[in-house]
Amino acid sequence: MNSNGTPKQKFIFTDSGRMEKILSQYPDKRSATLPLLHLAQTQEGFITGAIIDAVAQYTEIHPAEVMDCVSFYTMFFRRPLGTNKLQVCQTLSCSLNGADDFVDHITQKYGTKPGETTSDGKFTLLKVECLGSCGTAPVIQINNDYHEGLSINELDKLLDSIP
């Protein structure tokens, strides 16, 4: 498997203070793997091969073990995505309450199928499994924020309000 096919330039954490703090929080360095990956993904937008190598070096584990971790969790992206990740919940409650209409609407509005990114790189549409907010279905997570119980109109306004 390829480490994203990205050129192997050395990855450097721009927020080195935060990185040091994360590392210092764990007696066992390998425990810092997940938070370091999140920090790196926030910086780079997705997990590159260089990030895998850098995190492996800081946590003193083999890059394959970091990749094991990255590939296990769905919130780590292994390819470049749009600036805003539109993550529509697909699980039971949301599905019954019109999540599929969300997906159709976004596909129509921007011409992107699930998994695709708009040509201007602004949006990526993703189908995700249970976001754990069944009581307020349907739920769409845009980047790190939940937007709950929206109608199609409200969703439309919300999308237009994103700069």
């Binding site: 498997m1 390829n2 480490s3 192997k8 091969g49 895998i52 584990i61 083999h62 890059p63 394959a64 073990e65 990749m67 094991d68 590939s71 296990f72």
Partner: peptide
């Protein structure tokens, strides 16, 4: 590879239905 050879080249990629044994291409 983790315990005996100590080289850790192999790992379980992804999870559930999609799991498979893999090695990094450059390692």
């Amino acid at each position: 590879t983790q315990e005996i050879s100590g080289t850790s080249e192999l790992f379980v990629e992804a999870r559930g239905y999609n799991s498979k044994i893999a090695a990094l291409e450059d390692k």
